[in-house]
Design a protein around this nucleic acid. Sequence first.
DNA 1: AATTGGTTCTGAACCGTTACGGTCACTTCA
DNA 2: TGAAGTGACCGTAACGGTTCAGAACCAATT
Lengths: 367, 367
Amino acid sequence: MARSMHVRRPATLASLAAELGVSRTTVSNAYNRPDQLSPELRRRVLETARRLGYPGPDPVARSLRTRKAGAVGLLLTENLSYAFRDPAAIGFLEGLALACEDAGTGLLLVPANPEREDVAAVHRAGVDGFVVYSVPDDDPHLAAVLERPVPTVVCDQPDLGNVDRVGIDDQAAMNSLARHLISLGHRRIGVVCMRLARDRNDGYVTPERQRSAHFHVQRSRLAGLADAFTEVGVDWAAVPVVERFDHNIASGAAAAAQVLDRDPQITALICTSDILALGALGEARRRGLNVPHDLTVTGFDGIREAEAAGLTTVRQPVLEKGRAAGKLLLDSAERTRPRSVLLSTELVIGTTAASPRGVVEERWFGP
Amino acid sequence: MARSMHVRRPATLASLAAELGVSRTTVSNAYNRPDQLSPELRRRVLETARRLGYPGPDPVARSLRTRKAGAVGLLLTENLSYAFRDPAAIGFLEGLALACEDAGTGLLLVPANPEREDVAAVHRAGVDGFVVYSVPDDDPHLAAVLERPVPTVVCDQPDLGNVDRVGIDDQAAMNSLARHLISLGHRRIGVVCMRLARDRNDGYVTPERQRSAHFHVQRSRLAGLADAFTEVGVDWAAVPVVERFDHNIASGAAAAAQVLDRDPQITALICTSDILALGALGEARRRGLNVPHDLTVTGFDGIREAEAAGLTTVRQPVLEKGRAAGKLLLDSAERTRPRSVLLSTELVIGTTAASPRGVVEERWFGP
DNA sequence: AATTGGTTCTGAACCGTTACGGTCACTTCA
DNA sequence: TGAAGTGACCGTAACGGTTCAGAACCAATT
């Protein structure tokens, strides 16, 4: 009943002022600056507001005048809903939400459907700034964000030179994981990676596609691997690298199967994410391969599920990334040059990596 | 460089129009209704816009004029970041995001800190509607939402009579779980529940507090239990019910310990959420109790982790709940009476519930 | 009596759009 | 040839606030 009255409601700050016989300014002050009017008048204003069903100053109008929206926008590469399925993305979101919460700011999830190139949602977003999380560097949504006259922080993106940035050194992190495997004796490896560009390419990846990958994170991780293995004489161009568009355990399993079918002699399967690695583990089990002795499997991210599985991986502080991004954005106080936050990672030695059988034998029976 | 020009940008639709010598309307049409002007003029407008660094119509001003924000607000009972830690909440979010995505609408996470009673964030939110998820029914944020003149959908809330609603029949669902345990022979039970009100009360719950609980979901589940057990002659007032404010596995373990310490003779520990139940399972293991033979443990929600643990529980369609809430809100097309969506639940028979030892013995050696 | 200072309240400008209802020149058609 | 369309563009009036420089008033000080 009370609510149905609200449905079409003419009450506005002006009408309230008229009703009370005071100026709009006074009504505004009643809400925003209680010290600017007598307590008695303020009481009257608020009471009349209640009587007329006036819900207080309209947020949009206020935003227009004050030029603050009280919210930051988040642009994700994937469907909005995907973010809630990927543990790493969830961690990032949690951190970002934490930062927003601290600042009393809202967090607007912008519906940027990667399929249609509909950038309108970016234009429609009434926000004070944007956080962009892991989108391909040629994403039109990203371009649209950069054209908006608001501060922006990118995460897991290449250095754009003129925008705040937070991330990790993916290349170095993956490089150190590679060195670990190399030290264990692995030379014949296969790689399973997430998608490298906006187009779907479920299968083998050419070196050219690796170099020109539009996802900075994936490109860097592959580069880290290539560097390490090239250094010990492995012909990177001959290393099988398979890509999967969809990021889930089934994809990881399918990709692992594809590699193992064509190159059964590999001793290690390096995956660029834990999710893919969990799929690879499943596939190995299905084939009766003993991990790590028949096959080493590694991941990247350090999600909880990976820990439970004992995965050898690289842990990155996903929550911290989100929080850092939020903080950076929210205290964009007259900074001049763009800032860059690089968080550290940690190599997690699990139980899914070991020396390949051949190497062990070498040690025992070698020269 | 190009970006630094944007920092203080005077370019507006009006200034663009002036520069071009056309009316503001025409510039507006260039963006919003290409058919209303000649392609040639439109091209000129857009080009001049680029030259002047005009980023297109200001979203906030547009929202004010059109009276749509292009976003829906989500109000959660907990800290924003908490939502990303609770699997059930994540599922709800995913469903809601799905619905928003379909409609091309943004999703604004409103920072409603449950500690301070700062309702301002609700007032500041520029949204076309609200979804309210599982907040105490006396939450001031909820009251603030209901005063806003926008459509609202509540989820896991009591029927407010004048607002759209989606949920499940918590009472019936828990009742059926209780009957299952009763049929197994359980009569001496303990209960672990989530928090019942806004104040922290880690410990035993009086029947009075149960009845007056401000979290509809918890109140209903307890009522479902009370009904079932009362019916078979159990004195509900004597059943130990312990409450925990924090919702995590450690809390569940601590609560279980509290019950088991005081009432070691109970044969079943009924938890009102899977998370708590997982904690209880851990505590039982720690005490060397064999689940289910020494102790039956049950949960509620049907999260993935529960399935992995073989928990006997009630599965509810959390994703569907989110999606239904979103849909309800987004097609608020001139409905008259409030709508209500009740989703169905499913009793999941796991491996954590069995007949108590006594009952088995009765069967074998009884009269 | 004039000045000062402090409250309390007001007027008008401004925020950047879009909706609405035109005008005007130029076909088209009977 | 006159009436009725049609396409391209424009003027005005909101949309609902906030802000800032005063005005009006009163009490206290010089």
